[in-house]
């Protein structure tokens, strides 16, 4: 999970919008609200992309509450069964729940920060066995049996977050390469 300056994943994740409220009147930034107003008034709520919201919040031009993807409702669902929570549509098109959570945590104060980071960590740890299992066996899974749409593996596969999907692809790829290597070893011509 790279937070590299040059990382495309990181750029896309930071683009996700955060709902903030301005602490002061600002002239000439009306376009941020999307309306026809020329100025922004104090206490008006605006959806800003995170790369704007981070610096503005650090300089106390805006404030924001804990955003919905990390609300208590999601936390409770994760505590109940981490593997059946759909993380893919919580944050943006590709689902960058973990990345965005880390960026938010950078801007929070100490206590909510520790809390949020803990939630992210526990969720990842709990989802990891299912992820590893799925990537190792997905190719050989029996698809002729109709899987009920409420089974945990089905929901987990749909709900995989962006970084989890990348790990899944890596797992599948390495499984395939290992199988190829085993097969190729046996079919060497002209025994030497």
């Amino acid at each position: 999970m790279d937070d590299d300056y040059y990382s495309l994943n990181s750029i896309l994740a930071e683009n996700h919008k955060l709902s903030c409220s301005f602490t002061l009147d600002v002239e000439g930034l009306g376009y941020l609200e999307g309306g026809t107003e020329n100025n922004i008034h104090q206490h008006s709520k605006v959806e800003l992309p995170f790369w704007l919201a981070q610096t503005l919040s650090l300089n106390e031009f805006t404030t924001f509450p804990l955003p919905p993807p990390y609300s208590n409702r999601v936390k409770a669902a994760l505590n109940a069964s981490a593997q059946s929570v759909k993380l893919s549509n919580l944050v943006g098109g590709n689902g960058w729940w973990y990345r965005w959570g880390r960026r938010i945590a950078d801007v929070l104060d100490d206590e909510p920060q520790a809390d949020l980071l803990n939630t992210l960590l526990k969720a990842f740890i709990n989802r990891l066995p299912a992820l590893q299992d799925l990537s190792a066996h997905h190719a050989s899974a029996d698809h002729t049996l109709p899987e009920s749409s409420t089974s945990t593996t089905e929901t987990f596969r749909d709900g995989m977050e962006g970084d989890e999907r990348e790990l899944f692809a890596i797992g599948q790829e390495s499984g395939k390469m290992t199988r190829n290597w085993y097969d190729s070893n046996g079919s060497r011509k002209g025994g030497r």
Partner: peptide, 14 residues
């Protein structure tokens, strides 16, 4: 003028 600074900050960040 904090609002001016805010304005310039947004443009700089963009």
């Amino acid at each position: 003028d904090r609002s001016l600074v805010c304005n310039l900050t947004v443009q700089h960040l963009s």
